[in-house]
Amino acid sequence: MLKQRLIPVLLLQDEGLYKTIKFKDAKYLGDPINAVKLFNDKEVDEIIILDINATAGNHPLNIEYIERLTSEAFMPLAYGGGVKTVEQAKKLLRLGVEKIIVNSAIFTHTDNVREMVKVLGASTIVASIDVKKSFLGKYEVFYKNGTLKYKGTLKEALELVNDIGVGEVMVNAIDKDGTMNGYDLGLVKIIEPLINAPIIICGGLGQLEHLKQVTNSAISGFAGGSFFVYHGPLKAVLITYPAYNTLHEILK
C-alpha cells in the first residue's frame, strides 16, 4: 500500500486548461477534457480540478462542463471553484465529483461549509488554504484566488477548518506555485501539528526527489501542477505521471 497520493492539480479557466506562476500569469495549455483522459490512462491516484476564475469572476458553476470532465474520470476527482452552498455541492457530487474543495467559502460562507460537512459527510469536503509569506517572513492566509487576505493568523485559519471538521486540508504555498523548486518544507513543518485532518500539500513540486524531502507523516497527498503538465527545461506541454512501480519505490 502507498500511504500517500500523488495528485495533479488542473487549473480551469473558461473551459481551458491553464498553469500559473505564484497564482499569476495564467498560461494556456490546452483542452482539460483531453488532459483528464490522458491522466486516466496513466492511472493517476486522484485528480484535482480548480476553476481559478469561479469565485473571482463571480460566475455560476459551469455544471455542464464539469459533467463532461467527470464522465472521463475513472479515478477520484475533487473539484473546487465557486462552491458556496450545500445545493451546489450536492449537484457536483451527483455528477461524479468525489470531493468538494472549498476555499473562499471557508471565510465568506462559514456556516454553509459547516452544513456541507454535516449533510454530505466530512470526507467529502476538502478545505484549501492558500498561504503566502509576508515581507517579514510571516505566513499569511489568502483567499479568492490569492487576492484577498484573511484577517486572522495561519493558526486561526487552521483552527477554523479543524472546528468545521473537514475531511482533508490542502495547503497551497502561493510563493511556490509554478516554481518547481520543491515544497515549502518550513510551512509543512508548521502546519502539520495544527491540522487534525489528513493533509495535502501543494506548490513547488518539480521532480520526484521533492517527495522524499517531506518526511512528515500526516501528509496524505502530494499535489502539483507544473510537474504533471510540463516537460524539460523549455517547459514543453506534456501530460506526465510516474508509473506505479516508480512511485512505489519513492513512497514506500
Binding site: M1, Q4, R5, D45, G167, N196, A197, P198, S217, G221
Partner: peptide, 9 residues
C-alpha cells in the same frame, strides 16, 4: 500516525 477518514489507495 494514521488519521481518519481513511482516504486514499
Amino acid at each position: 500516525s494514521l488519521r481518519t477518514p481513511h482516504m486514499g489507495w
